[in-house]
Design a protein around this nucleic acid. Sequence first.
DNA 1: CCGAGCTGTGAAACCGATAACATTTCCCAA
DNA 2: TTGGGAAATGTTATCGGTTTCACAGCTCGG
Lengths: 348, 348
Amino acid sequence: MSRKATIYDIAREAGVSTATVTRVVRRDPHVREATRQRVQQVIDAHDYTPSLSAQNLESGRSRTLAVVLPVISNLYFNRILDAAYWEAEKNHCSIRLFQTMENQAISSELVSELIRCRMDGVLFAGSIWSADRDDLNFALDKLGKYMPVATICPPDVSLECICIQSDLVNCSRLPVRHLHTLGHRRIAFLGGSMHSKDTSRRGEGFLEQLRLMNLSDDPAYHVDAGYDMESGERAVLRMLSGLDSSRWPTAIVTFNDLVALGAMKQLKRMGLSLPRDMAIIGCDNQFFCAYTDPSLTSVDLHPEEMAQSAVRELLLARESSSRSFAIVREATLVIRESCGAHLGFRRL
Amino acid sequence: MSRKATIYDIAREAGVSTATVTRVVRRDPHVREATRQRVQQVIDAHDYTPSLSAQNLESGRSRTLAVVLPVISNLYFNRILDAAYWEAEKNHCSIRLFQTMENQAISSELVSELIRCRMDGVLFAGSIWSADRDDLNFALDKLGKYMPVATICPPDVSLECICIQSDLVNCSRLPVRHLHTLGHRRIAFLGGSMHSKDTSRRGEGFLEQLRLMNLSDDPAYHVDAGYDMESGERAVLRMLSGLDSSRWPTAIVTFNDLVALGAMKQLKRMGLSLPRDMAIIGCDNQFFCAYTDPSLTSVDLHPEEMAQSAVRELLLARESSSRSFAIVREATLVIRESCGAHLGFRRL
DNA sequence: CCGAGCTGTGAAACCGATAACATTTCCCAA
DNA sequence: TTGGGAAATGTTATCGGTTTCACAGCTCGG
């Protein structure tokens, strides 16, 4: 590995001071044209570019935002990362990824690491809500002292940071309304986990919505089993085998599209025809929704737009004094075949 | 934003020199216990952690590897990024992501940027093969002067870097063999693009394999249309509508699982029953393969293992003199329902 | 013809750490 | 008591930039 030319090398060879080299690099107009050309030539000859580390040290910032999420293989978070990446890129910043895995609580090691890295901001997406509320506030406080903090969070929490709130209200309301309109009265909710405050909100919001519409909120219709396809399969099996078939729900809302995928597989395996025997709605509007059989009606929370807002606000907060406030992006229902709406299908 | 305590602050307050503070932080045993405790107290009080930027400048490295790929939303690359992340993590390194989009050639701006950031290594996954071979070698040469370079590449290229070769041989051979065993004689290949040297290799390898087994390599059975689901739909439509149904292939191999997903949708739309009327094999063994209907037989190139090897070799190369060599991870066929093998199904 | 004002350039401090080397302190044997 | 050697600690250069400030040289008006 050859040594990279430094500003001193360039200065010496061009017979100027390092200050002048900087001026040339940064296109400072206070340089005589002749000097500029001479220096530029040396720069070109050595293919010189100033060292990022040195610039970071000098400026005290890293032009890097941290994105903290559970896993990128989950497409929801994948979309968040992708959007954050491009928005950061647009502002000449880079993203440093942190995956917390199922270890969902925000650890003090992570906080230290973030501070150590002198991040210019942090975006938390999922993965921190299972922490004790006091611990969480403590961590965010501490982080907030050194950098702007943003979170993509449930709508009712109010944290001392930039809160980009998922529209969990509509996320519950839209599917239930849609199913209700199609004539469904017994609606189940599968997936998620009561252990995580974030994701249990989805289930709660759903039950609330059922009550609001005078529908049964029978606990047998609420199975929290996880976030992936296996969870979906298990949940369906558990729910249906525990019920007399006369009491089976006629529609299922799932925590996300993966759970829906698993549920559909299990339903088919049990001989049910979709959407005739069972309507199903997913969440996240993943790319494959249009390609399942039947294609899957799903709620889109627009994670890209949330991530984009988050990054934008983080970069803004760096300039002005950091503020604490909330932004909401409304969720949307994308109707496909899995509820039979395309057939003009109405139950009863 | 409050100012972070520096090593000087700590040293002053503890009444020692910065050298001693460093020693305490780095657990150097040559510090008297009493001193250590006193310094540690001040450190704890201020929650001091050494600045990464300063350490980077001093050490001349960033403990960061670059991963260059087209898009992370493509699950193949997503898996590569994920695996690279964890392997880097294990070695106390971080990953800096670069997405090149469809702009697949390696640009000189990218090369400069990589050098400017003083990356400790670069991993190229896809996305550079469409570049002119000379340009590519020039870029890799230049990069190679400053950091170890690894690529996940087709098996026949030999570049001056660490080459982790995709097993495209088996990637073509396995599906064709499998289909042949099941009695198929007219096999088509859909997807990819002739414009990219990397991906056109897949199609070529496939044709080669057909000839090797004395099967028809009719150009009408080879439609290159792209990499996503829409491409799959279009490709099926284009191929079948151009052929008399008596000449239709009985099996389809696709560039990847996304194309397969699209193809399956289009085939069903045309009234075909899968796998009875058409067998289909994807590539990448994505998570949803087990959940399509029928579940999708697919080739796994094991991108995680390739990425892991790449990162490991990059970190190794940093130590020793950098070498140029190749590693191959053999591809595997994961048999599911989409070819009817589970039915003991044989054509003719 | 002299000083004010402007422009171009350089010297040096600084950013926050680390490490080589120098120095002080300490302990123990002579 | 002292000298030697090891242990503890301090001094200082360095990493590669940026920035402030001082200063030299030039122009121009009075």
